[in-house]
Measured scan of single mutants.
Amino acid sequence: WIARINAAVRAYGLNYSTFINGLKKAGIELDRKILADMAVRDPQAFEQVVNKVKEALQV
């Protein structure tokens, strides 16, 4: 799951650890299995999560 998430978030200019930190700051409580599945099956929803994380990180 970690490898999938890392590959997906790198397309948005983040790395895995920064993304996970941003999830916590944004108050998003999705587990890694769901995030990895979302990255593959629903990229639009995953992009929305990434955008919320970037807002929380102020990137």
Rank of each mutant, 00 (worst) to 15 (best):
R10H: 11
Q58K: 11
I20P: 00
L57F: 04
I5R: 00
N21M: 10
E29T: 08
V40G: 13
Q48M: 06
M38S: 03
K33S: 12
A36S: 10
K52D: 06
K33W: 09
R41W: 07
N51Q: 06
V50F: 02
S17L: 13
Q48P: 02
E55C: 10
I5A: 01
K52G: 08
G27C: 06
R10I: 05
I34E: 08
Q48C: 13
V50Q: 01
I2Q: 04
F46N: 00
A3D: 13
A26Y: 02
K25Q: 11
V40K: 13
G27T: 06
Q44I: 15
G27H: 13
F19W: 02
I2D: 01
L14E: 02
K33M: 12
K52Q: 08
Q58H: 07
L30C: 15
E47A: 09
G13A: 05
L57Q: 05
A56P: 02
L14R: 00
V9G: 01
N6A: 12
V40T: 14
G22L: 03
N51L: 11
K25S: 10
L35H: 02
Q58F: 07
K52N: 10
M38K: 03
K54V: 11
I20K: 09
L35E: 01
Y12G: 02
R32I: 15
N6K: 14
R10E: 10
I5D: 00
R4H: 05
V53N: 00
I34K: 10
Y16D: 02
V9I: 06
L57C: 07
D42G: 04
R32T: 14
K25G: 08
M38P: 01
R32E: 15
N15Q: 05
K54P: 01
Q44D: 10
I20T: 09
V9Q: 00
A39P: 07
M38W: 06
E55H: 06
K24A: 10
P43R: 12
V59L: 13
S17I: 14
K52F: 11
D37F: 11
N51M: 11
I5W: 01
W1C: 15
W1N: 15
I34P: 05
D42F: 10
I5T: 01
R41D: 13
A26C: 09
P43K: 10
F19I: 01
M38F: 05
V50M: 04
E29L: 13
Q58R: 13
I2F: 10
L23R: 01
L23N: 00
R41T: 10
T18M: 08
K52L: 07
R41N: 11
L35D: 01
I2W: 15
I34N: 11
P43E: 06
L57P: 02
I28A: 05
V49E: 03
I34W: 14
T18D: 05
T18S: 13
A11N: 12
I28G: 05
R10V: 11
V53L: 04
I20F: 09
K33C: 13
R41L: 14
Y12A: 02
E55N: 09
A3E: 14
G22Q: 03
I2T: 01
I20S: 11
D37E: 10
I34R: 11
N15H: 07
G22D: 01
A26S: 06
P43V: 11
V59Y: 09
M38G: 02
T18G: 10
Y16I: 02
D42Y: 06
K54H: 06
N21E: 10
Q44M: 14
R10P: 01
G22T: 03
K52W: 08
K24L: 12
E29K: 14
K54N: 05
D37A: 05
A39K: 03
A36F: 11
S17V: 07
I5C: 02
E47F: 07
R10L: 12
Q58G: 10
L35M: 05
N15K: 05
M38I: 09
A56N: 07
A39G: 06
G22V: 02
G22W: 03
Q48G: 10
I5Y: 02
P43C: 07
T18C: 13
R4A: 14
K33Q: 09
E47P: 01
A11D: 12
N6S: 14
E29I: 13
I20W: 07
S17Q: 10
R41I: 14
A26N: 05
L57M: 10
V53Q: 00
R32A: 14
T18P: 02
M38V: 05
N6R: 08
G13T: 01
I5L: 14
V53Y: 01
E29Q: 09
I20R: 06
V59R: 11
A39T: 15
A56E: 08
V49N: 02
Q48H: 15
Y12L: 05
A11R: 12
T18H: 09
S17K: 14
R4S: 09
V49L: 09
E55F: 07
K24D: 06
A36K: 03
R4N: 08
A11I: 13
V9T: 04
L57G: 05
I2Y: 13
Q44S: 07
G13N: 08
Y12Q: 03
R32C: 15
L57I: 13
A26G: 07
L14W: 04
I20Q: 05
V9W: 00
E55D: 11
V9M: 03
A3Y: 03
Y16Q: 02
G27Y: 05
G22K: 01
V40F: 09
Q58A: 14
I2P: 13
V40H: 12
L35I: 14
K24N: 08
I28D: 02
Q44V: 12
N15A: 06
T18I: 11
F19N: 00
Y12V: 03
A7Q: 11
N51H: 13
A8T: 03
T18Q: 11
K24S: 08
A39F: 06
K24I: 08
L35S: 02
A36Q: 02
M38N: 03
A45V: 06
A7R: 14
N6T: 14
N15P: 04
L30Y: 08
G22I: 02
I34Y: 14
N15R: 04
A11T: 12
I5F: 04
F46Q: 00
R10F: 14
L30V: 07
A45I: 12
I2E: 10
K52A: 05
V59Q: 15
Q48S: 15
D31K: 14
M38Q: 08
L23K: 01
K33G: 09
E47C: 08
I20G: 03
N21V: 13
P43A: 08
N6G: 09
A36G: 04
N6E: 15
V53E: 00
A8L: 03
G13I: 01
V40M: 09
D42E: 11
L23F: 04
V53I: 05
T18W: 04
A7C: 13
K24M: 07
A45D: 06
S17M: 11
R41Y: 10
L30T: 13
P43I: 10
F46D: 00
A45Q: 09
A56T: 09
D42M: 11
F46P: 00
D31N: 12
L35Q: 02
E29M: 12
E47D: 06
W1D: 15
R10A: 13
A36M: 09
V49K: 02
A11W: 04
V59E: 10
E29F: 15
L23A: 06
L23D: 00
S17N: 10
R4D: 14
S17T: 06
N21P: 05
L14Y: 04
D37N: 12
L35V: 05
N21Q: 12
E47R: 11
Y16F: 04
K52H: 07
V50N: 00
I2H: 01
V49W: 03
N21L: 13
N21G: 08
V49T: 14
N51R: 09
D42P: 02
I5M: 04
R4L: 15
V49Q: 03
R32D: 15
G13M: 03
V40E: 15
R4Q: 14
Y16R: 01
D42N: 12
V50R: 01
L23E: 01
Y12E: 02
A39S: 13
A56D: 04
R4E: 15
F46H: 00
Q58W: 07
T18E: 10
G27R: 06
E47W: 04
A7S: 08
R4W: 06
Q48N: 12
G13F: 03
I34D: 06
E29W: 07
K25H: 11
N6D: 15
S17H: 10
I20N: 06
S17Y: 15
V59K: 13
A7E: 15
A39C: 07
I2C: 06
K33L: 06
R10M: 09
V59A: 12
A7W: 04
I2L: 05
